[in-house]
Design a protein around this nucleic acid. Structure first.
Lengths: 132, 132
DNA sequence: GTAATTCCTATATTTTCGATAGGAATTATA
DNA sequence: TATAATTCCTATCGAAAATATAGGAATTAC
């Protein structure tokens, strides 16, 4: 799955953070979107590591975006949140298939992944925000 | 996953059937492509139900295509073989999400699915055959 | 010092995927 | 008519991945 629950949760969290420039506790964010708190922690930690959001520890701490919503493509966010963002099970660059050289389908799967990637790069986080 | 092992097996099987107009036993087809025989049976039975291939029962029986390879798009084959051919977990027409009306991401997932579908409709089974 | 938070590691639960098992029904052919 | 080779049917299994939970250490505002 290219967009699983995990990826959707990541987008929910980021849209919520986008609504305020201030640090927001994950607890409140998770509650609003009915995301299990501890699961949300795991997801947001990947986003922090990737530099998409930043954290403030301790009391009154929380998370906030590091950029403006227009500056995040959906592709970028999902790439960090999802474990595998490929459309075909057999199309990675690390394809260890012995017949990769002569496989007639491999180019198709590669092109498919590229198509998906391009599609998801056309949208930004701001496209998911309530219209002004 | 849009193209899983199951879908790839289906394409392998159909490609093999395409190489001869005659009925071929699934056993031989499965052996050539190293597909577990019983698993292949499950896959091909879906293709029969969908009318993509036809069967001949009994001794000397087997399967053959019902059309020429040019007349099958990859989208069509995968749609029958894969259990879910959607890119996002939450984009089906049977979306039972209570906030579907106001969900800002739903249109994105729908468009993504359409993009994938269009892509896979550009290729046919004949594109997977060894070049003449 | 306390409460609220992020951070870290480990484990549990649920669902999906890939595969297997056993046999019934059908058919060519010897 | 017996036999062998096949499709067809239904049920189940095991492994992997996805989803979620648990417990607490580290940090910080007040």
């Amino acid at each position: 799955m290219i967009v699983s629950t995990k990826g959707r949760y990541a987008l929910h969290i980021m849209t919520e953070l986008a609504k305020s420039g201030e640090y927001q506790s994950l607890k409140s964010v998770a509650e609003v979107h009915r995301i299990p708190h501890k699961y949300a922690e795991a997801i947001v930690s990947a986003l922090v590591k990737a530099g998409l959001v930043e954290a403030s520890r301790g009391k009154n701490g929380g998370y906030r975006l590091t950029r403006t919503p227009e500056e995040y493509t959906l592709a970028e966010i999902l790439r960090e949140a999802e474990t595998h963002m490929t459309a075909a099970s057999c199309s990675g660059t690390d394809s260890n298939c012995p017949h990769a050289d002569s496989c007639p389908t491999l180019p198709v799967w590669r092109a498919l992944n590229e198509t998906v990637e391009n599609f998801l790069s056309k949208y930004t986080l701001s496209d998911l925000l309530p219209k002004e």
